[in-house]
Amino acid sequence: MKIPAKVFSEVITHLFKKPATTAYPFEKAKLFPNYRGRIDFDSPKCIGCQICVRVCPAKAIEIPLSAHQPPAAAPAEGQPAAAAKKKFDCIMKLDHCVFCAQCVESCPKKALLMTQDFELASVNRKELRRHYK
């Protein structure tokens, strides 16, 4: 059945409704708890297994050895000296990262953490290369 201008009543009711858009950036954006944002790094937990580097589809992660290694713990009496645990850094290239969080899922020690940061845009390319120590 043809009814011309049927949508008009709908349009007029919408004049009195709240807008569907939000006032971001003046208002905080609403994110769901599952949202995948910037990946954070927890250095003491990292064992340098490089699994994250191998699974990353965008080649966005590097796990180099830290420049400053912690000294070995003083050996307990009568026991052989324990080797110092190596410390690792994480270089996260945010301009490469596709935010899939596969590294977080593959990390056996949970050293990579998913955060909800999403305001990562920058006009300076160097700022996108984050070095977590």
Binding site: F32, N34, Y35, R36, V98, F99, C100, A101, Q102
Partner: peptide, 10 residues
């Protein structure tokens, strides 16, 4: 809500 992303759900 379910996957964490709007377009690339992964």
């Amino acid at each position: 809500l379910l996957s964490g992303n709007r377009v690339h759900y992964s």
